[in-house]
Design a protein around this nucleic acid. Sequence first.
DNA 1: TTCATGATTGTTATC
DNA 2: GATAACAATCATGAA
Length: 170
Amino acid sequence: MKVSKGKGPVRKEKKEVLKPVVEDRKVGKRKAAIEADKSRRKLAKNAKLGKKDPNKPKRPASAFFVFLEEFRTIYKQEHPNVKAVSAVGKAGGEKWKSMSHAEKAPYESKAAKRKSEYEKLMKAYNNKEEDTDDEEEEVAEKSKPIVKDDEEEESGEEDDEEEDDDDDED
DNA sequence: TTCATGATTGTTATC
DNA sequence: GATAACAATCATGAA
């Protein structure tokens, strides 16, 4: 099931703005991409605030991000004065590009592991969502004979699940 | 005090 | 298939 979780309308709006961005990225015009990224993040955050899904599993780190985690600590040691995350990202990106496939392999396998975990979590998450949906439907059904006609519209937008933040990886 | 920003690449989700 | 969105990080500045 493809659910447009809040992204739908937002994305459409952004699509026009961001369309050239990816091209720019391909061509190498980072600046344009960065500027567009800004607005993206803004909107993304707004979307988050508008409809936050605390239960939704976070995306797994890609191989590059796994590498970056490690790279950051090394970079910090080598450059204790450099605190800008942008510098680390830049350096990490350059290094990543210079690495051979063999060097990337361990990070890729780690990323794959995280990915499979993510898929598991997503399955559970989706099941939960369906459950919630069912429950809501049931509630709605039950409410039907009770509710005459006026209040039929807005029945039961209750989230019975409080967030149990529990995404701890080992 | 709270929140956005910057910089990177890869992957997922959506259309 | 194309493209938008997001994943981590954290000092810093702005509101």
